[in-house]
Amino acid sequence: MGFISRLLEPDAHRHLIDEEGEVVVEEVHKHWAATFWWYVLMSLSIPLFISMVWAGDFFWLPLAAGLVLLVVSMWKCHVAYMDRFVITNMRVFRIHGIFNQNLATVPLARILDISMTQTLAGQLCGYGHFIFESAAQDQGLKIIRYVGDPTERDLIIQRTISRAGLRGNVPHPVRPAP
């Protein structure tokens, strides 16, 4: 993958430990609600471009304002697009950033608690925020915002932890036959 393609599409697979058999269980994109207001701002540039017709000699004012709104909102949408949360069979990690890419990793064995919060808007639109608590005091992966279908994603993480054998299975009580 070349430099330009890394600026346009994050590559979670290059961070996998292939020698140890690490595979991606799920790669999570930001929910659309994370970029909703940036798309609204982007659409506000259209009336500014149209108003250039009536601005006369000062057409450059709405042109400049429209270009600023358009470029800033497109940039913010791309920043949200490049933010990925990846669940593997060995760890969870987050890749974010465009020019300076950041990677934060927590091995499954170090995850102690996962809290999920959903605001009213999150419940209506289907997103939530994860808060990871690990054995480390200072960690790189703490809060993941705008996770779509958070209940299902939480179950995927719990299943992955269970399949890795990191949590003890609770024995089911044996009931005598009637």
Rank of each mutant, 00 (worst) to 15 (best):
G21R: 04
N100D: 11
G21A: 05
A136N: 15
E26P: 09
N100G: 09
A80D: 02
G126L: 03
R167I: 12
V68Y: 15
I17D: 15
R145I: 01
P171F: 10
L63G: 07
D154F: 15
G148P: 05
I114L: 15
E22S: 05
I111R: 04
K142W: 00
L155R: 08
Q123F: 08
T35R: 01
F49A: 02
L67A: 09
L67G: 13
T105R: 07
L69V: 02
P150K: 10
T160Y: 00
G140R: 13
F85C: 06
W38P: 04
A34Q: 05
I95K: 03
C77R: 08
L63H: 05
T151R: 06
L124T: 12
H15K: 00
T160N: 00
A64C: 11
R167F: 03
E26D: 12
P150A: 11
V86T: 03
I50E: 15
G165P: 06
R163N: 12
L108Q: 04
F59R: 06
F58Y: 14
D154N: 08
H29Y: 08
V147G: 03
G122M: 13
V40D: 07
A34C: 08
F132E: 09
A33V: 05
E19P: 01
I131F: 13
V68T: 15
H172C: 05
K76N: 15
V23A: 10
D11M: 12
